[in-house]
């Protein structure tokens, strides 16, 4: 990867630099929010929201930024592959963790306004 040139060139304002700045800031903000959410949310199930959603936008932003910074077929295709697989695996990981947390009662029932999983018709069949 080429070293990033922070100086605005002799042609003054560079659009690519502006895009880079916006994307990097967005990604940093999202990852920061995900971190704060992990600490601040009250139980496992809430924390999973923080671990999946802002994180994926942060990743998309940073990967898009890399693709914009050194634009070539190789980086763009790799970026597409990274986003695709992260998009597929992050929900699956969250689902497995959430299911395990629910079945072992690692969640706070007092902050649920509705719970249709505990009271579902065939709940007794599985326990």
């Amino acid at each position: 990867m080429n070293p990033i040139d922070f100086s605005f060139g002799d042609d003054g304002f560079d659009l690519r630099d502006a895009v880079t700045a916006v994307l990097v800031l967005l990604a940093a903000l999202m990852c920061f929010a995900a971190g704060v959410g992990l600490v601040r949310f009250p139980d496992v199930l809430s924390r999973l929201h923080a671990a999946t959603k802002p994180q994926i936008l942060g990743l998309i932003a940073i990967v898009a930024d890399v693709a914009v910074t050194n634009l070539s077929v190789g980086t763009v295709t790799l970026a597409v592959a990274i986003i695709f697989f992260q998009g597929l695996t992050a929900p699956a990981a969250a689902h497995m963790t959430g299911r395990a947390a629910f079945r072992t009662d690692h969640f706070r029932e007092d902050i649920l306004v509705v719970d249709e999983l505990t009271s579902r018709p065939d709940a007794d069949r599985r326990s």
Partner: peptide, 26 residues
């Protein structure tokens, strides 16, 4: 939707007076 969801969750995580209230539904 990804952009909207991320901004929404980020806001919930960062906003000053957060009161947890969740739901599990079918």
């Amino acid at each position: 939707d990804i952009v909207r969801a991320s901004l929404q969750i980020a806001w919930i995580a960062l906003k000053p007076h957060y009161r947890p209230s969740n739901a599990i539904f079918a």
